[in-house]
């Protein structure tokens, strides 16, 4: 029996990047988007509705997190327990910081779900430049299916069963990349940026463990690996957004930079509220949330970060 096609939801850069990676891996892709923006290829078929994706076994969600629930509900009526769903979103939902795999589970009949995290960027997926990431799922079949669908000589995909850790690390990296952009906008040098990144990741790991994730996930590709790529300048929008916040640009203007800003802002506020509720020490995230929401002036946030008491590492 020939391998079934791979479904992709989302016609943004990432959706197309995944479609090209699938094509390079020798598989057929079915791409569904309300605004596909580009024409299909020999191995990338544009489909007009979610029903057509039922022919796939593995379906990627490449849409921003606020849209995942609605689309999953629409798609869910066409699926059953035999489908695998994997998202690439950097976001958490609800007061308890649920990852989007939870949304996929509650809105569709699918249980074999997962998340793709790490330093994957759309451009590298499109061009086939060397890149890598981590696929997180409790189901080995899903991890293997993602590797088969995308992996190749230019794309190394590691795997983990720590879905909670990988999803939260991915969300936190989006937030920290914005914070580093913010620090760069204030002229802070590499040492200050490194301090910010390290302390912030330690905070994220603490929260992740409370959520049920593993500490080591934050030290791996989904955490530090991803953040290193952002700092090294892989042209993801969060850095530019951070710099724009530092320059006090209007929120509306910042929103048009990459479409990820509002997700980051919401996540920051949600994570900060969660840490207050469960009494977790998270000064960096709390300050980020306040600065991004313009509740405190940017200069004050930087000063507050630098004047924090120094403790044991």
């Amino acid at each position: 029996m020939s391998a079934p096609p791979i479904g992709i939801i989302g016609g943004g850069n990432f959706g197309w990047g995944l479609a090209h990676a699938v094509e390079r891996a020798g598989r057929e892709a079915l791409l569904w988007s309300r605004r596909p923006q580009r024409a299909g290829t020999e191995h990338i078929e544009l489909v007009s509705g979610p029903g057509a994706l039922a022919a796939a076994e593995l379906i990627f969600f490449a849409v921003p997190s606020p849209y995942v629930a609605t689309i999953a509900r629409e798609l869910g009526v066409h699926l059953d327990g035999g489908h695998f769903l994997v998202h690439i979103s950097r976001g958490v939902v609800g007061d308890d910081l649920l990852g989007l795999t939870q949304v996929l589970r509650s809105e569709t009949p699918c249980r074999r779900v997962g998340a793709l995290a790490g330093p994957l960027v759309a451009d590298a997926l499109i061009t086939g430049a060397p890149s890598g990431g981590v696929v997180a799922s409790r189901f080995p079949e899903v991890r293997a299916a993602v590797r088969e669908a995308l992996g190749g000589p230019a794309l190394r995909l590691y795997s983990t069963d720590d879905v909670t850790g990988a999803e939260f690390a991915s969300t936190a990296v989006g937030l920290f990349a914005t914070a580093i952009g913010f620090a760069q906008g204030h002229g802070l040098g590499p040492a200050a940026q490194a301090m910010l990144a390290t302390r912030a990741m330690a905070e994220a790991a603490r929260i992740g463990v409370v959520l049920g994730g593993k500490h080591e996930t934050f030290m791996g590709l989904a955490g530090f690996g991803d953040l290193l790529a952002a700092v090294a300048g892989d042209d993801r929008p969060e850095l530019a957004i951070g710099r724009a916040i530092a320059e006090n640009q209007p929120l509306e203007q910042i929103g048009s930079i990459g479409g990820t800003y509002f997700e980051g802002l919401e996540s920051a506020g949600r994570i900060a509220a969660y840490t207050r509720r469960v009494k977790l020490h998270a000064p960096v995230i709390t300050l980020c949330a306040a600065a991004f929401a313009r509740e405190i002036p940017a200069e004050e946030a930087v000063a507050a970060l630098m004047s924090r008491e120094v403790g044991e590492e």
């Binding site: 009526v77 327990g81 035999g82 569709t108 009949p109």
Partner: peptide
């Protein structure tokens, strides 16, 4: 019953490409 309210075949959860397996 799936979240949509429609019945879903429980056998589909232990199947790959239509074939039920022990895994």
């Amino acid at each position: 019953i799936a979240p949509s309210g429609q019945p879903v075949d429980p056998g589909s959860y232990v199947s790959r490409r239509g074939v039920a397996t022990v895994d």
